[in-house]
Design a protein around this nucleic acid. Structure first.
Lengths: 111, 111
DNA sequence: GTATTATATAAGCAAACGCTTATATAAAGG
DNA sequence: CCTTTATATAAGCGTTTGCTTATATAATAC
């Protein structure tokens, strides 16, 4: 029970960053590749990669290569996924980022 | 909507600490005074006060003086309380700390 | 009053964090 | 091949975090 609190705290620590929290909410409805995140968040590609690495190391997201792109998706097998899912429900949908990408013709077809 | 994510992220940042997360879970079922937290967590009184200040500043807990003691309780009027409540449900009950205090005769009667 | 108990605040410091720039790796296109 | 594109990793650095010790405030007990 000690450990359970600690595991949850570690997840909250990761979600305590606006960029990572937004990423997770976005991934709730669609997969994204790294370059799309770079396009959306006004920060550098290494910064994005580092955020994704933290999320991946915690088992919150998973990656899969598609050619030169690496697609990130929610890891719905994560042990505490119901916790994560529950809290994402309280956040506003972020799909406007997707529409924004499509308007700019910058959506990578991940299918 | 930007702001909503940011507010949530700030709450998760606070919950991303084992001590504060445990405190919140404890406060879900009972009020506690500072000295009880000091007794429970193996850390100094200033450290506890600083954690509580952060939780209070974020509107997650509230305090009320009772004589020389200051009693902390969950602030169920906090704007994002349903978010907090939802996630606390995923955490194991921490009432064993209360029992532990009572065994040691260190429970302050907060009533 | 003075001493004791409970709590908060301030200052200092090591560790963690999140960015940056530079570089490495890996696939695609010519 | 060589160049370009996508991504990851490493190193460096300023900021934030969470503790510590020391001190201040406030209520109680004598």
């Amino acid at each position: 029970m000690e450990q359970e609190i600690e595991r949850a705290a570690n997840i909250f620590k990761l979600l305590g960053d606006k960029t990572r929290l937004t990423m997770l909410k976005m991934l709730e409805s669609h997969d994204y590749c790294v370059c799309e995140f770079v396009e959306i968040f006004k920060t550098s590609q290494p910064a994005i990669s580092q955020h994704l690495k933290k999320l991946k190391d915690a088992g919150l997201v998973k990656e899969s290569r598609r050619g030169q792109w690496i697609i990130y998706s929610l890891n719905r097998n994560q042990e505490l996924f119901s916790l994560v899912q529950g809290l994402l429900e309280h956040l506003p949908n972020q799909d406007f980022y997707l529409e924004q990408l499509e308007e700019q013709g910058r959506r990578i077809s991940c299918k």
